[in-house]
Nucleic acid binder design. Structure first.
Lengths: 102, 102
DNA sequence: TAATAATATCGAGAATTATCGATATGTCAA
DNA sequence: TTGACATATCGATAATTCTCGATATTATTA
């Protein structure tokens, strides 16, 4: 499994991005779901993050990209929405990597 | 235990600093000990890192500072030398923090 | 006490990151 | 096909980080 520790740590070195990961642990506590979307499985879309982050859509999108490239979140496009969820497998791997390698 | 996740992740977002942490896992494999110094317990001094990093003394000293402020390493001054070791307790805590909070 | 060695700190320029507004791209619905 | 959204990307500026050389500080020793 590919893993770029520095890219991962950089992705985690930002309050807003940590916030995103945190919100995604219990999305129903922080967001109102789209009709018929199970946020646990499908995720949360960019505009929902944009609103909650209180930053521009551009920034939200870029932060999500950074988290995704680092392997921390996964993306699924449905219609005009792009949903993001945590990649729990990968996050577990990173935890293991930290415990073994750092 | 007091912990500043962002500061920690920033400290880890640099190849040389990860290298330092790695070398300190098995210091005797990477450094020649000073007389009477048990590197496992006492540590490795700034000039030893400087040489191995192939960077200036200034940079090495600052990197060690960053790691220390993040809580990843501990310092002990003996005479004119400053020795650094991993703070294994704290590193374990950070691993646990990652697994529980991220 | 002076000279020397090890380390820490300061100030600066280059490189990277944060964040924005503007615009391009993709998708649905009329 | 056009209009309206949702998202992604581009270009720019401000802020932060990297890294250095120079210098200050601390400790040892002649």
């Amino acid at each position: 499994m590919y893993m770029e520790p520095i890219e991962i740590f950089k992705a985690l070195s930002n309050e807003s991005r940590l916030q995103i990961l945190h919100w995604l642990k219990e999305p129903e506590q922080h967001f109102t779901p789209h009709e018929g979307i199970d946020m646990r499985n499908i995720g949360v879309c960019v505009s929902q993050f944009t609103e909650k982050l209180n930053m521009t859509q551009s920034t939200a999108s870029q932060y999500l990209s950074i988290l995704q490239r680092a392997g921390l979140i996964k993306t699924k496009r449905i219609g005009k929405y792009t949903y993001y969820t945590r990649d729990e497998d990968q996050i577990r791997e990173i935890g293991a990597f930290f415990n073994n390698q750092i």
